[in-house]
Design a protein around this nucleic acid. Structure first.
Lengths: 116, 116
DNA sequence: GGTAATTGTTTCGCTACCGTATCATTTGCG
DNA sequence: CGCAAATGATACGGTAGCGAAACAATTACC
């Protein structure tokens, strides 16, 4: 089932959810960082630096820095790939899952408040 | 009418739309900047620096800087309030409206692609 | 008229991000 | 074995964001 949104609904949903994210943002993530985090948790693994860089259309240092930041926040974890030690496998954490769960709650909540 | 979203739908919608925003971002706006832009265009005017700062829960220089950046991109325009010359009235531009129109299209598009 | 309050901007020192280029490590392959 | 390719991290110079504090301009109020 698809979600049918009117132009007004789409922007209002984005606005109210973004507003609540900004107001209550404990971590103050960049749009890119948020995108990386969502990708790691929503797309089937494995996730590598190179793969993420290609998907987002950014350079590799962007991914490395984002992983540094979010890693120190506990939202993400890095592990060396034992099969191919050049690769770094990016893994999920409990704290990251909780963060996205809260984000989902905000979006659902604001969607519920939408008036057509 | 409200928009009923499942947790999975909410996060997938956010992910795919954010991804397309990052991939194609001509302007590379911050989450805060995007929020300010949406607020200006979706909430009835007038909009002032102080009002925006209070709404977003940030300091005034954050708003000033965001208006500087987005102003030089043509997304927003500043005017002095003639009634009370201490105030700055933030106004919309054609280019800003087009930018948000494209954002709305992306969200609608990704909502349409959602599978339950 | 003169002082206090209000508004938006600027300055300051700092931190974080950007892309390019380079590096270290590991693997692939002749 | 030896060299090229691949992967992720780092160095570098530059830009932009941050909060706190100070500032100029305007208005409110006694």
């Amino acid at each position: 089932m698809s979600v049918a949104l009117s132009p007004s609904q789409a922007l209002h949903l984005w606005h109210s959810a973004t507003l609540r994210l900004v107001q209550s943002d404990a971590h103050d993530l960049t749009l890119r960082q948020l995108c990386i985090l969502l990708h790691i948790y929503l797309v089937p693994p494995p996730h590598t630096v190179r793969g993420l860089a290609a998907t987002l259309g950014v350079t590799k240092p962007v991914i490395t820095r984002a992983l540094d930041s979010m890693g120190s926040l506990g939202l993400v974890r890095r592990t060396r790939d034992e099969k191919d030690k050049r690769n770094v496998i990016i893994q999920r954490t409990v704290e990251g899952a909780l963060y996205l769960e809260r984000l989902g709650d905000i979006i659902i909540d604001e969607g519920r408040e939408l008036e057509l």
